[in-house]
Amino acid sequence: MCFTQNFWNLVVSGLADGFLYALIAIGYTLVYGVLQLINFAHSEVFMSGGFASYFILNAAIGTSQPHGIASVGFLALGTIGGGLGGAVVAFLLERVAYRPLRRRNAPRLAFLISAIGASYFIYNLAGKEFGRNALEIPSPFTNGPVFTIFGATVQTVYIVVAVAAVIMLVLVDRVVATTRLGKGIRAVAQDAETASLMGVNIDRVISQTFIIGGVLGGAAGFLFGLPFGVVYTMGFTPALKAFTAAVLGGVGNIRGAMIGGLILGIAENLGVACTQASWRDVVAFGILVLVLLIRPTGILGEQLGRAA
């Protein structure tokens, strides 16, 4: 096969991609859980996180080359900054593009259109304000090979992505499973009407859901921007793939989004090995169409939200 030669290398880079997809996919899945809607503007939450971390690290690091404990500190700063940027945009997005429609009980089509409008507004505004060229995030660490496993070289940046992602994924899983906030989210996802009768403040839960998704998506924007830089159009493709990951795992299902992200990352990298890099997105899209045709409810099923 075309990928056997490089198999483990591809798996390692696929896992790194997969962790990012998983982080973004959770934003889709959570919002889908409480609103039964695909948040089309989630790509811009991701982009905003990238820019926020760029500005913060640019100010903090400047031209210095941090290492050791300082690297870890700056990484944490970038992740938190990205998460905050994503959270703020996600919160505003819900307030401006979703809530007025929810108040009016508008048709679903209106939500999707409003979200698409928000997406185009946000990323083109970013392009206008921050320029349309890619900006390089000052690196908090020196990238290079760390160790090899099955002959695959593992770079520092992969480890950074994996560690940060695993921490956040575990956190969000625990938050949704155990906290009061998580209980609210699950209650609204299951039956919003009953939840509101039981005293759950639906508006607040929805806001919080967007914020959690925004934190993860924004942090993913930072982790993505580390190797690739940030640019106003950076959201579209990773978000489309993350959505694929969410569907793959079962929309509305948090662990499904994680598994779907990892599978998609690996499958995409293996698939690309069989074609050319320029067909990368076609491979991911092919996977989306296949999943929708064969198992539209995903691997783990649609758990958080109601079945269709």
Partner: peptide, 10 residues
Amino acid sequence: LGALLIVMMI
């Protein structure tokens, strides 16, 4: 155009 879409929907 994006802003217009939101305004129209609202």
